[in-house]
Simulated assay, not measured.
Amino acid sequence: MFTTAWTASPQLPAEGFTPNWSREGFWRQSLRQAVRLSAAGDRIRVRLSNAYGTSPLRIAGATVARASAGASVEPGSVRRLTFDGAASAEIPPRGLAASDPAELALDAMESVTVTLHLDAVTGPATFHAQAFATSYRAAGDRLEDVRGEAFDASSESWYFLSAVEVDTGRRDAVALFGDSITDGFGSTPGANRRWSDALAERTGRPVLNAGIGGNLLLNDSAWYGEKGVHRLRRDVLDHPGVDTLVVLQGLNDIGFSETAEQPTYQPAPVVEVHELIDGYRQLIRQARARGLRVIGSTLLPFGGSDHWGEHAAKVSREVNEWIRGAGEWDAVLDLNRALADPGAPDRLHPAYDFGDHLHPDDKGYAVMAEALAELLQRNRLPADA
């Protein structure tokens, strides 16, 4: 049985605030992307998404290999992927393709490359804007290129690749669902210091990162993805091996209306606490219908940030009080208290602040992971943990 060991939530092609290749797409090029797996296995398969494509996506060929430095891979580790036995695949608009399993033994916390040869015009590319990791592009067919020197262009986004699965057979994966804090904004790029990485290292469990920077719980965004209540099924529930969902979302719904007027933060309606509670309840119902346990996290302190204001302060306090006391979650993770400045509880502790008073740094993400690991152990989630 396969278990998801890595994920990236698909997004609509957009400029966003990270330069990327999503609008231009690819043609007669090879795309190499390295991701770190949170579980071990002897066989591997990948999922490729054309969720926002307007035309069929042709995959002329694909390989996996153990990652080395930069775009290079470990010699002798390259494996060809097939799709229903064929060397190529065509993914329809809004479609998804899963490769056949390939024999490649990998350890947990080991990085693997996925290389795609895209010989036909892709059109705008379904992507994940903020990877905090480097992807590489080369001209022509470089599927079995080991040294990586031909990959002379780079990007800090992921394209088409939405999941990597291994045959570990585990059913105790934890899915982290949220916005830029879950996505890892503020962590050191290329160092795997998101709180999902720290949680996998701390617990030894498979961990899925289903964060999208700027994502909203209640509203779609052209730049920051479909609203949380709609994307949960695709980004978490449809992945094999997940038994626990952790929800850390709502801060952008509260804070975007407080920010300076700019296109990235649209829509920005003024949201009330009862609307967010209804959204959380939708997530809880969806997850429990699939048999998942659901952990609710309080929103982190964000006083002094561009998301802070009188209304945001009021609603965030009310939301956190509801999360702590409603009794509607299987467990509550109080990250607000774990990361707050004792002398100014509405603000992030200076030791955990990336610098914008909104996002944690590497140390802050490690504290978040430790708090969740302790909660999972204390509450025995899952029961056989």
Rank of each mutant, 00 (worst) to 15 (best):
A153Y: 00
P124D: 02
D179G: 05
D172M: 13
P124Q: 01
L118R: 09
E201C: 01
R137D: 05
T126E: 10
V78Y: 01
V146L: 09
V164L: 10
E149I: 00
T115D: 08
N209E: 13
D145T: 06
G95Q: 06
T122L: 04
G211C: 01
E90M: 10
V114P: 06
R147H: 05
D84W: 02
F177P: 15
R194N: 09
A150G: 12
V207P: 06
G140F: 13
S157D: 07
A86Y: 03
S155K: 04
A98P: 08
F177Q: 15
E165F: 06
L143I: 09
A129T: 04
T126D: 10
L81G: 13
W158F: 05
D119L: 05
T203R: 11
G85D: 11
R170K: 03
S154R: 01
R193H: 04
Y136D: 00
L161Y: 12
V121P: 00
T126P: 08
S155F: 06
D141S: 10
S135E: 03
P189W: 12
G95A: 07
E156K: 03
E144Y: 00
T182A: 14
L161R: 13
A89Q: 11
G204Y: 01
S187V: 09
S77E: 11
I181L: 15
S111N: 13
L106M: 11
V146F: 06
Q130T: 12
E201A: 07
R142A: 13
W158E: 05
I91M: 15
D197L: 08
A108D: 14
F160M: 05
A191Q: 06
D141F: 13
F83A: 14
S135A: 08
R137G: 03
A138C: 04
G211H: 01
V146I: 09
G190I: 02
E149V: 00
A139G: 07
T82F: 04
R194H: 08
F160T: 09
D84T: 09
